[in-house]
Amino acid sequence: MRKNRAHCRWKLLFLLPAMLTIVATVYVPLVYAFYLSLFGGRGRKIEYVGLGNYTKLMSDDMFLSSLVNSFIFTAIIVPCILLLGCLLAYCLWNLKSSAAKRFLSILYFMPSVTSPVAYSLFFKQITYSDGIVSGILKALHVLSDESSLLNSVAGARILISAICVWSWTGFYALILRAAIDNINESAIEAAEMDGASTSKIFRKIILPNISPVLVMVCILSSCSIFELYTEVALITKGGPGISTYTMALYLYRKAFVYVSEFGYASAIGIAVFVLLILVCLVIIIQKKVYGNEK
């Protein structure tokens, strides 16, 4: 008993640095941001307004438009990541050569460790009006000679979505592959012996077994989309019009580009946080309901 308690104390001691770091870098700023969001005004001329900033958000066209944009991006990006992630993970899992597996794993992972600034600038270069992508699209008559991919609402949204899918899918594919690795192989072997097709095995055995991980991928990628900043700030700056404007971009501008409204910017941050929790809850509840029905 005594030994257990001492063991426990050691565990706590070792956990303490990590816990303190998380508290100092996540929870304290979060609480402070909420406190700050209760103050209106600009610069140091601020006053307590209670939930006034949140009320103002509800009628702020720019915030509401960026919210809609986030949902549009979620609707495009998350299904693509799930689909491609599963496909890549399954292909990787199915490979016989372990060298090929290692090579492809590194290849998949590379975009997610590439600096978003670097790849955003790269994609921007190739999608300029005279960039290679625009050139190909013009040659295929998808774009007219005088337009650019970034000049059209659909083009800009598709481009941002494609970049996010390219950047994030590999990472999620590796997580999904690890989930597939954990499936009891005898179930798959039994299905194969019964003559089940590959697609049937995938739908009936693999997908149900990795569904908790799929939910996690849904949640993580949705969170990333709601916090989307670098790609949009560097490539489209929210345009054309406000078609790719995101909440993170609006938050940044409210805090540091426009006349600083740190209270209002904090309210945007807290609103994003609450929205993310709601999105996560919806995904989790949906999964539970769906799971129970099954």
């Binding site: 005279d130 337009s147 489209t236």
Partner: peptide, 17 residues
Amino acid sequence: WDVPGWDDYFAAIANGK
């Protein structure tokens, strides 16, 4: 010659658009 952003001015100048 319509451009979507600041950086495209450079390309337009360089290429005589």
